[in-house]
Amino acid sequence: MADRRLLLLLTLALLSVLFFMLAGLRGNIAFVLGLRGLKLLALLQVALSIAVSTVLFQTVTANRILTPSIMGLDALYVFGQTALVFLLGGLGYASLNGGFKFGMEIVLMVALAMALLWPMLKLRMDMGLMLLMGVTLGILFRSLQALLARMLDPNAFAVVQGASFANFNALRTDLTLLGAIMTLVAVAFCWRARHRLDVIALGRDAATGLGVHWTRSAAGLLLLVSILVAVSTALVGPVAFFGLLVVALAERVVKTQRHAVLLPAAVLVAITVLVGGQAVLQHALGGASTLGVVIEFVGGLVFLILLVQGARK
């Protein structure tokens, strides 16, 4: 049954991709297709990395409501952007070498994630305590960012605004290839670990009893999560609720938590929502709204529904 549902999701995802590529095609067709293809590649990559990273994060933390952004990763990203603009000025920031900046962003975000996780793994710190640390760090970075933003001149502030919201129209297509390689490598690791992930989902003690080296596995998986989040954030900016939305949807469609099914299902839902949503907004609604806002709105609602459902149980 799960296989048939997976096939349905695959069809939906393919339809959205076709719609995105072919809707309202006119003018120099080769040029338009090339442009859209590049954009599609970036969108696919964002869908892949956010879906997979959210599933992994929820499995390791044994919590179906958390997403990596709760660890303060996106807040750090926005803070980093603001700090760069503050130090270099709006023009200096705009003239930075894209590849170099991308690399630095990823290294920084992975370093933060590991700095957060290392104490937990060494001291066997409670997962709840660690998440609290993540939330607190998120507030710290947001406050620092707000402080810097107050001291910026209006032009530079506009540059920061552009960089700190998810934007699916102004994708960083120049970084797509580098990002795609990193994403694919990380996702390949996750796919190889899919059976081990099922065991990890049983919880720390049960997984250890079944021969999984917990500390090593958790560290490796969280490293993968931070790389995936870093890549997608660097490409489109922070999206808080997107991962939550697609994983919750996927789980309800395939009705299983086996990773061999859940991982592809989440990726396919993410592709449908992201690529399909972008195409509908562009072609059917004439760009009336930005996809980032719509996704955050719907995702926020799903978050609230999950909370209420959890409270009732």
Binding site: A62, L202, D205, A206, G209
Partner: peptide, 11 residues
């Protein structure tokens, strides 16, 4: 093999 006292199954 071990069976723990608090047999909580997370998933």
């Amino acid at each position: 093999a071990i069976l723990r006292q608090d047999g909580i199954v997370a998933s």
